[in-house]
Computed example of a mutant assay.
Amino acid sequence: MHKGYLLTCLCLILLPGYDCQKTERLQQAFKKDRLVVTPLPADTTILVDTLAYNARLQRLAHWPASSRWPVKAAYPLRGAILPFKRVVAFYGNLYSGGMGILGALPPEQMLDKLQEEVQHWTDADTTTPVVPALHYIAVTAQRTPGPAGRYNLRMPDQQIDKILELAARAHALVFLDIQVGHSHLQDEIPLLKKYLAMPQVHLGIDPEYSMKDGSVPCASIGTFDAADINYASGWLANLVREEGIPPKILVVHRFTQAMVTNYANIRTCPEVQIVMNMDGFGFPGRKIDTYVHWIAGQPVQFTGFKLFYINDVRDKRSTGLMTPQQVLALTPQPIYIQYQ
């Protein structure tokens, strides 16, 4: 049995000019079981309620805590969604029904089905409120280089605006997902700044289509290094500080070891909440094995789990789409759920 550890309720602050790479903590001391904290300067920004935050992390980890979970990471700023709410997202692109449920159904039917899934998760875990989301592929990998040789296609603003309109009707969050192809996050993320500056819009990045070896997308599985993920997180952190908006969620898809290298070097900060999302399909045993090895087994901060309406059930070994109850039995419990 792993030796558990006690998470103490630290009262942290965000100092002006905070650097995402360097967390400054107040000096503290325990005296008669009470935490004595240096008084806060008047111009600091208090972080989230750490007592409630720690309690929810422990619940996700299934008591008792292990040596891996909960992860010791930076506390988020106030307004953080995770782990206080579970996100249930529909994934896809409006141009192609084959890329996910988001574009496979007419808008009204899609939103109705999303609400049905939200209710299923609400019923399965009555202690955690559920917020719906539309996870839209805003930059899609392509098999041809295109005029710029990027092997990707950037969606027009009109399409992203449609997603924002649909999300508003459903009181849903929006995730804009990037498949870089032969491009780079440094070139793609800033182009979405006007959307990511909106409080309800978050970011997803997909290593599968980051072809650092120069191969054609879909011909092999791509990769991101911790440095790539840290760039995305740092960019979002700067945006949060500049705009004075709540923390962002950064979803990183993963289903193999090589898709994310040097995971232990991924940095966390109060402005960004990182979700490592199990993106593999197949029968339940295969999905659980992937989750155990490359998501739970290489902890970063939070975990996600993707369910495929088609690919998960057509395998002869499949017993059907995994239920919320089956997913919630995982350690740690995923706090981000995605349907494709």
Rank of each mutant, 00 (worst) to 15 (best):
A232L: 04
P217K: 03
P284L: 03
D206F: 00
H253Y: 05
V201H: 05
H135I: 01
D225G: 14
L77P: 06
K31V: 14
T140H: 02
F224P: 00
S96L: 03
I160M: 12
V240R: 08
L15M: 07
L47H: 08
L153T: 08
K316E: 14
A133L: 06
L114R: 10
Q58T: 14
G79A: 10
F30H: 07
G17L: 03
D206G: 01
Q27V: 13
Q333I: 03
I274S: 03
Y263K: 07
V180G: 01
S66P: 01
V88H: 01
L173N: 06
P64S: 04
Y95M: 10
L40I: 12
Q326S: 09
A219Y: 15
Y291N: 01
T38R: 14
L105Q: 10
A138Y: 09
S318T: 12
D161Q: 12
P270K: 05
P107I: 09
E24C: 11
L47T: 09
K194A: 00
P41Q: 12
L82C: 08
D49I: 02
G244V: 08
G98L: 04
R78V: 10
F84I: 12
G304Y: 02
I163R: 02
A65Q: 09
Q109R: 15
L192C: 04
G285Q: 09
I81R: 07
